[in-house]
Simulated assay, not measured.
Amino acid sequence: MDASRAAGGLREPPDPSNPAGRRYIVRFLDDRDYGRFLLNDRLREPRRGEPDRDVRPLPLIRAVSCPADKAFRLSRSLGDKAVWEVDEPIEVRALPKGAIVTDKGIPWGVRHIQAPQAWGRTTGHRVRIGVIDTGVDYTHPDLRHSLERGINLLNRMALPQDDNGHGTHIAGTIAAANELQGMIGVAPRSLLYPVKAFDHNGTAFVSDIVLGIDWCVRNHMDVVNMSFGMRTKSRSLLSAVNRAYHSGVLIVASSGNEGRVGDIDYPAGFGQTIAVGATNRAGRVAKFTNRSPLIDIYAPGDRIMSSWLRGKHREMSGTSMATSHVTGAIALLLSLKPGLSPGQIKSIVKSSAVPLRKAKAPRSAGELSVTRILNAAERL
């Protein structure tokens, strides 16, 4: 088999032109070549002797991301020792924002999956959750007991402060802990480590996500929430997901909101993740959710109230919201049964699901149930 095909990439040199700031990910076929590359002068500007900030090492997958012109020069020097792909843009996506809301307490989705019934047994205590997103509002009273430092990949010197809102909403569903004056999430005593990979517009590159996964692996996250997706099947992203999975770090990912049938977004489409679709209050599949046999579990994603910027709360809908319910449920599971492998967790979540109402596909995934998950885990 062609080595480039085995590595999942292209051999043809990238286009040296650089339309609209296009970037490439160049992956080395031999770890030793990657190490030598980092040690030599290729990452330095020849005149100033300073690191080239346009070239970003991606150590988890033994790769670099760089503009097209530099990728072209690199490809000529490496020949058949590397493969490359476009460093595609990727977005966090939810349906149009709902109104700012004043009703708080325990949101319907948290109740629907039966999380409150589990809090006498587990609250997610000390489970480490990486949230790769737009950051989190560190001033939000609902989250002050749950937040750890995390990392801002866009500005390494700053906190991963949210300037979009999406990441704060996700964080609230997972681990808010302010029931009397705000809201409470699925796993209120879990620890959130925000990884800001997306800018204020909710956009990032695949290389940003790879760096985020790398950080989560190196910092020993137990589970990672990735409430975003893309249509393109990135081989570099697949490689990062695989390495996380085999390192014991499970990724929970959203299926997408375009209502497609037989097709879901990536990384949810990779078998090493937990792929999540959305349901409504009636326990039926939400109209907007993408669906296919690749979906592992459905969870509440329609009109979900959660934390928002500047201490507020907002309703939002999307598979992003459903994904955060699943991540919180896994935190409850891991607090009760630490040490479960990603494969074991995925098997428990899927086998414990409640059958969907009026599900057309006989083999369709079911809906999340915390009670059933914990009962199944205790039988292990």
Rank of each mutant, 00 (worst) to 15 (best):
G271F: 03
N375K: 13
K360M: 09
R44P: 02
G182Y: 07
G9S: 12
T323Y: 06
D2Y: 04
Y24Q: 13
A63L: 10
I184W: 08
S17W: 06
L10E: 13
D31Y: 03
M183K: 04
A99N: 06
A118E: 04
R357W: 13
A187K: 12
G202L: 12
L180M: 12
R56Q: 04
A187P: 02
K312R: 15
L78E: 02
T273Q: 11
A253V: 04
I297N: 01
L147D: 03
R36C: 08
I100R: 13
R32W: 03
E12N: 13
L334F: 04
H246I: 02
G185D: 02
R314F: 04
W308C: 00
S324F: 00
G150S: 09
H169P: 03
R126L: 15
A275T: 06
F72A: 15
E91L: 12
D41V: 07
R36V: 07
H313V: 07
Y193D: 08
S255I: 01
A99S: 11
G256A: 01
D137N: 01
R189H: 15
S65G: 08
G311C: 05
R144A: 11
A176P: 12
A82E: 02
S254E: 07
S364N: 09
L309S: 11
S317C: 06
T323E: 13
A99H: 08
R32H: 12
V83R: 01
V261G: 06
G311S: 03
A63G: 01
L356N: 07
P46K: 11
M1A: 15
P59T: 05
M305S: 14
G124H: 06
V26I: 15
R379M: 15
V349H: 05
M305V: 14
K104Q: 10
I251K: 01
P107F: 04
P46A: 12
P13Q: 08
W215T: 06
I209T: 04
L143V: 08
E85Q: 05
M226T: 04
H325Q: 01
T371W: 09
A353C: 15
D41M: 12
I373Y: 02
V110F: 02
A3G: 00
A175N: 03
D133F: 00
H169M: 03
T279W: 06
V92W: 09
V224H: 09
V261C: 00
D137C: 09
E179Q: 07
L237W: 07
K104R: 14
L250R: 09
E12W: 08
K350Y: 03
D41T: 11
Y245A: 06
G35E: 13
L191V: 05
M226G: 08
F37I: 00
K97G: 12
L333I: 09
G182R: 12
S236Y: 04
S75K: 03
N242L: 11
I209G: 05
N18P: 00
V101S: 09
C216V: 12
